[in-house]
């Protein structure tokens, strides 16, 4: 499977119309919730059977964004990476997407360990119900994003509570994101976005 995540900035009056257009193109789309960080105004994601199908579909998505007057889109497309589903079919939860760019000088040498530790987060933080961690094939926007870290929670409390408060996150994983730590590999510019997509995105 091949997926696309788009975090779109656009005026408030245009959001509902663009969400409808993107849904008509086969995607899921919803307003980004309060508390995001550089997460856009509208989150959208698309799933395709393969890369070729995505390539064929992409021009219509770009046209819809242009027509709606989108001012910015942080996006990444990717073959699905590792994932898991503790709550298959979860459709009324909250999807969270993190676009990150592991572009610090030592990133290449440390990438395998970084990825291995990231995919253990759901084991230690069961509030992450469904998840996927993928390497971006192509990306655009503020940076050339290298990874897409997606999760689904039963509700926003899972993201704001256990995910943020668990020591596996802040005392271990975050050192990859923290310029004060020698292991730092991830650019401090991130897209942390979350939305109630209204459908099961990761299972």
């Amino acid at each position: 499977m091949f997926d696309l995540v788009c975090l779109i900035d656009l005026s408030e009056p245009a959001r509902a119309g663009l969400a409808a257009s993107l849904k008509a193109l086969g995607g899921s789309a919803a307003p980004v919730m309060e508390g995001n960080f550089n997460g856009g105004d509208l989150a959208a994601r698309f799933s395709y059977t393969d890369e070729a199908t995505y390539r064929a579909a992409r021009p219509a998505i770009d046209a819809a964004l242009a027509e709606a007057g989108a001012t910015r889109c942080n996006w990444a497309c990717f073959e699905r990476g590792q994932g898991g589903a503790a709550a298959p079919g979860l459709a009324d939860g909250v999807w969270r997407g993190l676009l990150l760019c592991a572009d610090r000088p030592q990133a290449e040498a440390r990438l395998d360990q970084f990825e291995a530790e990231m995919v253990l987060m759901p084991k230690y933080i069961p509030a992450i119900r469904n998840w996927r961690f993928s390497r971006a094939l192509e990306s655009g926007g503020d940076l050339k994003w290298t990874h897409v870290w997606e999760q689904e929670y039963a509700d926003i409390g899972g993201l704001m509570g256990p995910y943020m408060l668990h020591p596996y996150h802040w005392a271990l994983i975050d050192r990859w994101f923290d310029p004060e730590c020698p292991d730092w590999i991830v650019n401090v510019t991130l897209c942390h976005s979350f939305a109630a997509l209204g459908e099961a995105a990761l299972s």
């Binding site: 943020m164 668990h166 802040w170 975050d174 923290d178 310029p179 004060e180």
Partner: peptide, 14 residues
């Protein structure tokens, strides 16, 4: 606690 940790962490990285 974690809130104190994030408080310093988010400030320092920017």
């Amino acid at each position: 606690g974690a809130p104190g940790w994030w408080g310093q962490g988010v400030q320092s990285r920017y």
